[in-house]
Design a binder for these strands. Structure first.
Length: 360
DNA sequence: GAAATTTGACCCAA
DNA sequence: TTGGGTCAAATTTC
């Protein structure tokens, strides 16, 4: 096999297909007269094919850790390959032990991947009057754990992307309420979303949701929810001038005269040691208009919250906030984000081909 | 019944 | 050995 040093998904899939074909041949020859000879040669071929596939997979894994956006395409390709395989569905059932081995291996691989995932922290302030969509980030999260943290008064909630099983999106986040200020929540994100999900518009909008559509997100909100993606949107609008978004922008946001280059690598710094040093607050401050100029936090105003719990009473007690955060961070629909998402997904990519390594 | 959350148990790095 | 992160069965919610 050619080893170019660059990863090649099609080659990997081809190798895997070869391996499967050879395994099939091996199966077909099991009843042949010269069984031993056939088995030996075929097993040799299977082994060498698998070795090549493994080394290719390592390259893919490495590249995926650098360019998470590739993950989705790979997951789709793998799913397509799996559905093409006549054996994949009928499936020879795995034995219990091989299943266990498979799971253990998968777990180890996930563990390795997680270590390489980028990590960053947002601090979100909720107003005492209630909680808002600010704690939603437009992504769909599923809570998978909560834990008391030593030295912290409040438990930490663990969330993963709800598309993890379907497309293997490894994005996770942790929500930790601050001890110093109960209105502040540290939200630590880990891993980019590779599911390319976007908030889905509600099929039957509630009155307040319709109202949300009538009041599209400000850039402030957009950056709060999707810092990188909406930075892209912002840059585009700035480049093209105030066009269809004039109304939104002029009413809620005044553009800084920030050149694109000023959002270079420092615009988003990932940390594996002290995430608090690298919050979006600082990184995107030119675009963010905090409620108070001295505030270091995103400030969130009271609003109607979508999702399981429905609306939040304005006099929600602080003791309820943790639960509210849980709901807010795991909610799926965020109508206020629709416009921004349409903007960044549908338009931005055509204008600024995204070069992830360069951007980060 | 499906989907989401809760919670005790487990794993592993420090 | 300990604490943080994750798993997965049980429970809850819709």
């Amino acid at each position: 096999m050619e080893s170019t040093g660059a990863w090649d998904l099609s080659s990997l899939l081809r190798l895997l297909a070869q391996g499967e074909e050879q395994a099939r041949q091996l199966e077909a020859h099991l009843e042949a007269p010269s069984l031993a000879e056939h088995c030996k040669s075929l097993l040799q071929r299977v082994r060498s094919t698998l070795e090549e596939a493994i080394s290719m997979a390592k390259l893919v894994d490495y590249e995926m850790s650098r360019q998470p956006a590739c993950h989705n395409a790979i997951a789709e390709a793998a799913a397509a390959a799996a559905s093409d395989s006549p054996r994949s569905n009928s499936g020879s059932p795995r034995s219990e032990s091989s299943e266990r081995v498979f799971k253990e291996h998968e777990r180890m691989e996930m563990c390795k991947k997680r270590k390489t995932l980028p990590k960053w922290t947002n601090q979100v302030r909720v107003s005492s009057g209630g909680v808002t969509e600010g704690l939603e980030d437009g992504y769909s999260w599923r809570k998978y754990g909560q834990k008391e943290i030593l030295g912290a008064r409040h438990p930490r909630g663990y969330y993963r992307c709800s598309h993890r099983n379907s497309v293997g999106c490894l994005a996770t986040k942790q929500v930790q309420r601050s001890d110093q200020d109960p209105c502040v929540f540290d939200i630590t994100y880990r891993g980019e979303h590779t599911c390319l999900q976007r908030p889905q518009p509600s099929p039957l909008p509630e009155p307040e949701l319709r109202q949300s559509h009538e009041n599209p997100p400000t850039i402030h909100e957009a950056l709060l929810h999707h810092p990188r993606q909406h930075l892209q949107s912002s840059l585009r609008v700035e480049t093209e001038g105030l066009n269809m978004h004039d109304q939104v922008l002029s009413s809620s946001f005044s553009f800084p005269s920030t050149p694109l280059d000023s959002f270079g690598p420092q615009s988003r710094v990932f940390s594996s040691t002290n995430p608090l040093e690298n919050t979006y607050v600082g990184s995107f401050s030119p675009f963010i208009s905090p409620t108070t100029s001295e505030s270091n936090y995103f400030s969130v105003s009271p609003c109607q919250m979508s999702g399981y719990g429905g609306g939040i009473a304005p006099n929600t007690s602080e003791s309820d906030l943790t639960e509210i955060i849980s709901a807010a961070t795991s909610t799926t629909n965020s109508p206020k984000l629709d416009a921004a998402f349409m903007l960044d997904h549908a338009e931005f990519d055509q204008i600024f081909p995204f070069d992830a390594p360069k951007f980060f």
